[in-house]
Amino acid sequence: MRMGAVMRKVVCLLAWLSVGQVSGSYLPQDMNRTLQDLLQHYKISKSDIYDGKHVFPKEELKGKMESQMLFMGGVLEAYDKLFGHMLKGLPTPSPLSATSGDKADTSGPSTTEPSAAGDTRFNLIKVLQKIRELKRHSYQEQLKVLHGLQKLKHIEMDNIKVQGKALWELPWIYEKANSLADNVMRRRRRRRRQTRTGLAREPERRAKGQQ
């Protein structure tokens, strides 16, 4: 998929996030306004917005909380990279405009006024900072796991040395995998027992409250 198409779909999702806000949501008002400004620059048709195809599928956010957090960490990492590509897609600020103030007065695409392109760069950076703050404060552990998974993609599967070392490492990895699975199962059973115990004691608590 070409970067332009990816950007259009990302903007679709930004539109969905900013338009479909719920009262009391976590999206700050200034960030919402910034996204609206960006949507004016990265304008796409309504048919693209409402084509039912999201860049990041919602189905991945309906599982267990740990899985949702891990997936969301990947989504934020993807946004970080995409915003970097979007910034690179804007013309480089001229030396004069780069030193004229904290809003970089860059020249935009041929159909955009220079000041508008400068605002676009400023707004992209502003939203990117918000994304990075959220990653840093709430998704450090998930990003460590994701970076570890990315390293697995680079294993040389056809390398005889790698194959041999992997065989030597398999016993402790197999033991660890089983141990982790058992711990998760025990935790689930413990939670179920606690839930059943709480439900069983509820009539007793109610009776004491009525006395």
Score class of each variant (00 low, 15 high):
89 G>R: 14
51 D>V: 13
165 K>C: 10
127 V>F: 15
130 K>A: 10
134 L>I: 04
59 E>T: 01
76 L>F: 04
107 S>D: 11
115 S>H: 14
88 K>F: 07
99 T>H: 00
201 R>F: 12
167 L>E: 12
35 L>Y: 07
165 K>G: 05
42 Y>R: 12
59 E>K: 00
161 K>M: 08
47 S>K: 06
157 M>K: 12
110 S>F: 11
92 T>N: 11
5 A>F: 09
37 D>M: 13
58 K>N: 10
169 E>D: 07
201 R>V: 09
112 T>Y: 14
91 P>S: 12
5 A>T: 11
162 V>M: 15
36 Q>A: 15
88 K>Y: 03
10 V>L: 15
4 G>H: 02
3 M>Y: 11
142 Q>K: 04
14 L>V: 02
105 D>V: 15
156 E>Y: 02
92 T>G: 11
89 G>W: 11
2 R>H: 04
39 L>N: 07
93 P>S: 15
185 M>N: 05
128 L>R: 08
106 T>D: 03
126 K>L: 14
173 I>C: 04
164 G>D: 03
115 S>P: 01
124 L>S: 10
190 R>Q: 10
194 Q>G: 14
183 N>R: 07
130 K>G: 03
41 H>Q: 07
127 V>G: 12
180 L>V: 13
86 M>I: 14
63 G>W: 00
118 G>W: 01
101 G>A: 05
133 E>K: 09
129 Q>G: 08
112 T>K: 15
73 G>P: 00
24 G>C: 07
151 K>W: 06
9 K>G: 00
131 I>T: 04
174 Y>P: 00
82 L>F: 08
164 G>R: 01
89 G>N: 14
171 P>F: 06
195 T>N: 12
46 K>P: 03
77 E>R: 13
111 T>N: 15
31 M>I: 14
8 R>P: 01
155 I>R: 11
83 F>E: 06
79 Y>M: 12
162 V>E: 12
20 G>I: 01
113 E>P: 02
158 D>Y: 11
3 M>R: 08
70 L>N: 02
7 M>F: 00
26 Y>K: 09
166 A>Y: 00
112 T>R: 14
65 M>A: 13
145 V>P: 01
35 L>G: 09
193 R>N: 10
31 M>K: 14
39 L>M: 13
83 F>H: 10
116 A>Y: 04
181 A>V: 04
170 L>S: 08
183 N>F: 05
95 P>F: 15
170 L>P: 01
1 M>F: 07
184 V>F: 08
10 V>P: 00
61 L>Y: 11
149 L>I: 01
24 G>K: 02
14 L>I: 03
141 E>P: 00
68 Q>G: 09
135 K>T: 04
101 G>P: 03
177 A>I: 05
149 L>N: 00
77 E>C: 15
80 D>L: 09
136 R>G: 01
124 L>H: 09
207 A>M: 08
186 R>H: 05
55 V>A: 06
168 W>T: 02
117 A>D: 01
172 W>V: 05
